[in-house]
């Protein structure tokens, strides 16, 4: 008998209801030497993001773009992040793909045309993976970019959503992801409602897509509320320090 992902009473395996997020805790400015940094916990998924830049292009000059900044993203996952120890922390296919997706997301959000011929580096490391790593990485990176003071159109808030028994579930945990149903990852610019990235590699009937998308968007807005509070609190703390 497979696990019952959504009980008749509407509870998920971990006790949440369909639209509820996991607990989010975040801090900005965790490293002094980087331009910006942030740490986020979404349930048991923990991620660290560090931002350098904008600075001059490193390495071959040919990569420089004349009209906007180059966004460089690197994703890695700690060997101890999953239940069974991983062999390679980065450089495998999955990490490369994730890096690419992050890059697309942030190229859409950062006002790159303000810094032509320069480079912005975003490094993300997942310390513990318990489902929704992409979302956690995006959210951590957003905070780090904000911490670095790089101008953005808006927050980028990401959340995943799945589909079980005719109901859309927001913010899937590892157990729910492993069950093999469709999973959709969405990165949203909440103020305008624009989509920075939408990704799904499973079969889902198009009739249901709208419902799942709606659930993911609502969850992303909820994430935004939390991140906004974190940023405000951080700014307040920083200004208190400045005031001294």
């Amino acid at each position: 008998a497979g696990l019952e992902l959504l009980s008749d009473q509407g509870y998920r395996v971990d006790g949440r209801r369909a639209g509820e997020l996991r607990k989010i805790q975040a801090r900005m400015g965790v490293f002094a030497q980087a331009d910006g940094s942030a740490y986020i916990e979404q349930g048991n998924t923990k991620a660290l993001a560090v931002v350098y830049g904008p600075h001059e292009i490193r390495g071959s000059r040919a990569r420089a773009l004349p009209d906007r900044a180059l966004v460089n993203c690197q994703y890695s996952s700690a060997t101890f992040s999953t239940g069974e120890r991983k062999r390679r922390p980065h450089g495998d296919r999955k990490s490369c793909e994730m890096g690419l997706q992050l890059r697309q997301t942030f190229e859409a959000a950062i006002l790159t045309q303000l810094h032509p011929r320069s480079q912005i580096d975003i490094y993300v490391q997942v310390l513990q993976a318990d489902g929704g790593t992409y979302a956690a990485c995006v959210n951590a990176a957003t905070l780090a970019v904000l911490d670095a003071g790089i101008p953005m159109r808006d927050f980028v808030c990401a959340c995943s959503a799945g589909f079980v028994d005719g109901t859309a579930l927001a913010d899937l945990s590892h157990v729910e992801e492993a069950a093999g149903g469709p999973q959709l990852a969405l990165a949203l610019l909440p103020a305008s409602g624009q989509i920075a990235l939408l990704e799904m590699d499973a079969r889902l009937h198009e009739d249901h897509l709208e419902q799942v998308l709606e659930a993911a968007a609502r969850a992303s807005r909820d994430v935004h509320t939390v991140l906004d509070r974190v940023v405000r609190q951080h700014v307040q703390e920083a200004s208190v320090l400045l005031g001294d």
Partner: peptide, 20 residues
């Protein structure tokens, strides 16, 4: 696990003040 090793798994568990 299948290989006979024990695996430590941590799962979240959310509690709420009221259930029906």
């Amino acid at each position: 696990t299948f290989h006979g090793r024990t695996l430590r798994i941590v799962r979240e568990h959310y509690l709420r003040p009221s259930v029906p």
